[in-house]
Design a protein around this nucleic acid. Structure first.
Lengths: 205, 205
DNA sequence: GAGACTCACTAGCGTACGTTCGTATGTAAC
DNA sequence: GTTACATACGAACGTACGCTAGTGAGTCTC
């Protein structure tokens, strides 16, 4: 056993760690549990990681990098502010629903990261928030809508994403398409641009 | 030292525990830390509690009982569905902002409760969600507004509350009154009853 | 085939944890 | 003043933790 198993084992460790962190929390998960579910001994973990904390750090930075990539790619296809926002909301909600495990870890385990590693996460989180705020801001300027309060509106969108990741289940009684369409309507209306949404294919049926 | 210190010490333990759970998380907080901040020895804690988990359970049940009491009292003064909802939103947002420490514990440490104690918390949480949903539902029926989706609307309100508890700071650059007024306008608009809100004193200035 | 490298094993290190116990001390009740 | 109780202390329990170190088996390179 050598040379070829490395990548697979490393992958399995990361997956198992994420599942256990999600289920019991970082502090309540032991390396012995992780090793046991992977099917190796505790000591062997250290052939693949530097320590327990690296597992958490990788998950948190990874999920935020993926989220930033996703929203940038999603909005690139938009031809005007409203369609860019609609594309962003689609991405935002789907991402949080489908990757709820890692999103939840990212949102709940910041305090388990040693302070020197927190900036990596906080900077990415701030960057995402800024992207959303700019999208909202652009829509407001382009449409002349009254946004009430851009900051609170942006927070509301962020909150919906986080919340979706905590209740949405693929086998629940609401399809992901319905969740996306429903929340998109709600958000466009709360921004005061319900009628602009219709022009890009969002209906209030 | 006897007979009279009991209640004060018990109180101090609960307060210190909540602060440390909020800061580091339940699992990462040791009874030795708690005892040390209270100014007693570890063993002495057991004159006041049955075990570490009781501390968490009391916080979680307590905050939800307070929240349920608050929303019931707040809405009692409402004379019609819209004003009841507005009163509820005021209470909802203020409560989450002002009691963010315990709210955060309640929202993030459910998995640290042993399964047999979770029902206490989940039942209260469900009860709160039902109260909000009924308020939304009543408003819709009374005003004839198109709610888009009552469930998603209710979730959005819940999400805003949870999110507020994570960012609002009394010394931040937005007053609590502004947060409440701002979010109330956003929520009334997303429900499609912006104009009804004005009748009960919410302005979109 | 020899050497280098990968990756797993086993055993054990020092430390911290939640909890229990016996004891001491101060206060209240009678 | 005696009795009973509330409350604190200090020491110790068994267990689990993250992590390290030494070793051996398999595999790739040349």
């Amino acid at each position: 056993m050598a040379r070829t198993q490395g990548a697979q084992t490393a992958n399995a460790i990361a997956e198992v760690a994420a599942s256990l962190f999600n289920e019991h929390g970082y502090e309540a998960t032991s390396l012995r549990q992780i090793a046991s579910e992977v099917g190796i001994q505790v000591g062997s973990l250290y052939n693949h990681i530097d320590g327990k904390n690296e597992l958490l750090h990788n998950i948190m930075v990874g999920i935020l990098d993926d989220l930033l990539d996703a929203i940038r790619n999603a909005t690139a296809a938009g031809t005007d502010p409203v369609s860019r926002l609609v594309l962003a909301l689609d991405c935002h909600i789907r991402f949080h629903a489908l990757r709820s495990r890692d999103v939840f870890i990212g949102n709940s385990e910041l305090r388990s990261l040693p302070p020197e590693n927190r900036a990596d996460v906080i900077n990415r989180r701030d960057a995402y928030e800024e992207i959303l705020r700019d999208l909202v801001s652009d829509v407001v300027h382009a449409t002349g809508a009254d946004p009430l309060d851009v900051r609170l509106q942006t927070y509301a969108i962020l909150a919906i994403g986080t919340h979706v990741s905590s209740w949405y289940r693929p086998d629940g009684d609401m399809s992901l398409d319905d969740v996306v369409a429903g929340y998109t309507r709600v958000i466009l209306r709360q921004l005061g641009i319900e009628e602009f949404g219709m022009r890009v294919g969002i209906t209030t049926a």
